[in-house]
Design a protein around this nucleic acid. Structure first.
Length: 632
DNA sequence: AAAAAAT
């Protein structure tokens, strides 16, 4: 029986304050003050709506499990997940078996429409909605670069050639009517069986860029014929056909929620696993069938070790925000998942890697994980250009609080119409600042890695719904999260890297809407000043005099690291074509296996895991990454 | 330097 660490036996929701380790209002506090002994109005279990695993109340043990309409997708004929005794509680309550289709005799049988589930996934059709909030005209002049052998032509509509009919219906329910540039390319690329390395950011339609072609293929082709390993525990083991890895829990949840929409009525059952929340409910959910799994690396590895997930049926591997995962030191864990378990090798699966930037480490990972891939680089929609107004203010550290109050008071109309996202550099500052704002009667909450997972999820939900329209965040929210209606991003503390700055301000001005980005800067930030000035120039923004002055004070080259992504307005290049060009990286630059400058000699050198590349796999990379890790 | 991620 699965093991439950004592400290995790407390409830997942914040409903049971008696068992919560934090009972004062200090840490769990937000604008609404009290610590929510009973947050019935909250209704935010894990995945939006009030159905998350192990909801908010009464979920000691298993007794309350499965209540309240949580039943997305179970019960399609060929799947047998019932080992009777233990799961009596599953059948309790209104545990409706709706929404899941099946795939039998080589034919996909979508489930009938289900109004309740449809509302849950896509929202109430009665509410008027802007068509997905995206101004598609803004997509037309996005620079796109695509390269690689035999690159298929992009599509221009979802209907020519037509993608899977059920998928198309689900896309239409999501109010997308036209593919974004990344989708125009990714759909035929993946559809033709190729691997894809895509440089694209949130806001480019990246999630659909991988979910559409993957689900389309799964819908068409059905489950893998390799059913299981035939052992007695097999029914307790999940054999997903597709795996999506994401760097943060919130991003995993977001991908999961998107995938659920597009998988509606299909045979594909979507699950998500991530740390910080009860593993047992996640395991129980897997037992009910799992065809597409969205995961953060640590929790997935845990489940792999427990033998509760097998990757041998994987046909699609997606690495989302790959550069971020490397920044966070996930490379050993990712390599363990991809190379160290039972996942088919690169030639026997399709791999899609997405990354905002394309530094050397990512190129290396692409070479190791992808097979003869097509490289796609998509400039960001709007990005740092005219639809985000960037404002840099000179503010000393000890004046930041009062400046912030001035700004928030002066722009209080945005509080009613939009959301304000405030970035700080430390978790401590996130707490300090949100407490301060709350004490000043601003409806704020905070998200950072020291809050419990349920606090994090609740904070995000309060922010999204506008009940707490000010969110103080650390880097956990800097990338990937797609929160509509953020009208103002404030860099209370500037990040040390201008790439992070770009990601942060990209939380506003999404897809055609205007946004405002304010940053507090003082001499403590001089290391980013030069890059910042370049960026402001590139994006047609005013460069304040004090900024130029500070830049002149430090005559040395641009601070910090060398060789970071310059030329942000142009897409990243396919290094296979341009010969790498990285500064001093001996190991890489001197490679003789065709990645250098002889055009496309790369085609068959990337099968699997670095065979034929010994200099690389064992020196450079593994020593660097294993030094600070207890992982493999 | 800090953050994130299994416990």
């Amino acid at each position: 029986m699965a093991y439950v660490p004592p400290h995790r036996s407390r409830t997942e929701g914040s409903g049971d304050s008696s068992s919560s380790p934090v009972s004062s209002s200090r840490k769990g506090g937000d604008f609404f003050g009290h610590d929510d002994g009973n947050n019935s109005r909250d209704g935010y279990g894990s995945y939006g709506g009030n159905r998350g695993y192990g909801g908010n109340r009464g979920n000691r043990g298993y007794s309350g499990y499965g209540r309240g309409g949580r039943g997305y997708g179970e019960g399609y004929g060929q799947r047998d997940n019932g080992y009777g005794g233990r799961n009596g509680s599953y059948s309790r309550g209104d545990n409706k078996r709706y929404g899941q289709g099946s795939f039998t005799d080589g034919v996909h049988h979508p489930a009938p429409k289900n109004e309740k589930l449809e509302r849950e996934l896509f929202g109430d059709p009665a509410e008027e909605k802007a068509p997905s909030g995206i101004n598609f005209d803004n997509y037309d002049d996005i620079p796109v670069e695509v390269s690689g052998e035999g690159t298929p032509d992009p599509i221009n509509q979802f209907t020519s050639p037509p993608i899977n009919e059920l998928l198309l219906e689900n896309i239409e329910l999501s109010l997308f009517n036209k593919p974004t540039p990344v989708q125009k390319y990714s759909i035929p690329i993946v559809g033709s069986g190729r691997d894809l390395m895509a440089c694209a950011q949130t806001g480019s339609g990246k999630t659909g860029g991988f979910l559409f072609p993957v689900l389309s293929s799964l819908f068409e082709n059905g489950p893998s014929p390799v059913a299981n390993e035939g052992n007695v525990f097999a029914r307790r083991k999940a054999y997903p056909s597709a795996l999506v890895l994401a760097p943060t829990r919130e991003l995993a949840i977001q991908n999961f929620e998107e995938a659920r929409k597009y998988a509606y009525r299909s045979w594909v059952r979507v699950c998500v696993v991530y740390g910080g929340s009860d593993i047992n409910s996640q395991l129980r959910n897997l037992e009910r069938g799992c065809d597409l799994i969205v995961a953060t690396p640590g929790r997935l590895n845990d489940m792999l070790e427990r033998g509760r997930v097998s990757l041998k049926n994987i046909r699609f591997l997606v690495l989302d925000e790959a550069d971020r995962m490397l920044d966070m030191g996930f490379e050993p864990q990712i390599r363990h998942i991809v190379d160290g378990c039972d996942m088919p090798c690169a030639k026997d699966r399709q791999t899609l890697m997405f990354s905002a930037t394309f530094p050397k480490e990512i190129q290396v990972m692409a070479r190791d994980f992808l097979d003869n891939y097509i490289f796609l680089s998509v400039g960001k929609v709007g990005s740092t250009s005219e639809n985000i107004t960037q404002r840099i203010l000179y503010v000393e550290d000890d004046e930041k609080k009062s400046s912030l109050l001035d700004i928030l008071s002066a722009t209080d109309d945005t509080l009613t119409t939009g959301l304000t996202l405030i970035f700080v550099e430390t978790k401590k500052m996130a707490d300090i600042l949100s407490d301060f704002l709350i004490s000043q009667n601003f409806p704020a909450t905070s998200i950072h890695g020291d809050r419990t997972q349920s606090e994090r999820e609740r904070a995000l939900e309060m922010f999204k719904t506008g009940r707490a329209p000010i969110l103080v965040a650390t880097a956990v929210a800097a990338r990937g999260l797609d929160i509509p209606n953020v009208t103002h991003v404030i860099n209370y503390d500037l990040p040390g890297d201008v790439d992070d700055y770009v990601h942060r301000i990209g939380r506003t001005g999404r897809a055609g809407n205007n946004g405002l980005a304010t940053a507090f800067l003082n001499r403590g930030n001089r290391n980013v000043v030069k890059d910042l000035i370049d960026l402001l120039h590139d994006s047609n923004q005013e460069v304040p005099d004090f900024l130029s002055n500070i830049a002149r004070e430090s005559p040395s080259g641009r601070g910090g690291r060398g060789g970071r992504g310059r030329g942000r307005s142009t897409p990243y290049k396919d290094y296979r074509k341009y010969g790498g060009g990285n500064s001093g990286s001996s190991n890489w630059g001197s490679r003789s296996n065709g990645y250098g400058d002889n055009g496309y000699g790369y085609n068959n050198s990337s099968s699997g895991n670095g065979n034929g590349n010994s200099s690389y796999g064992s020196n450079n990379y593994s020593s660097a990454s294993s030094s600070n890790s207890q992982w493999w």
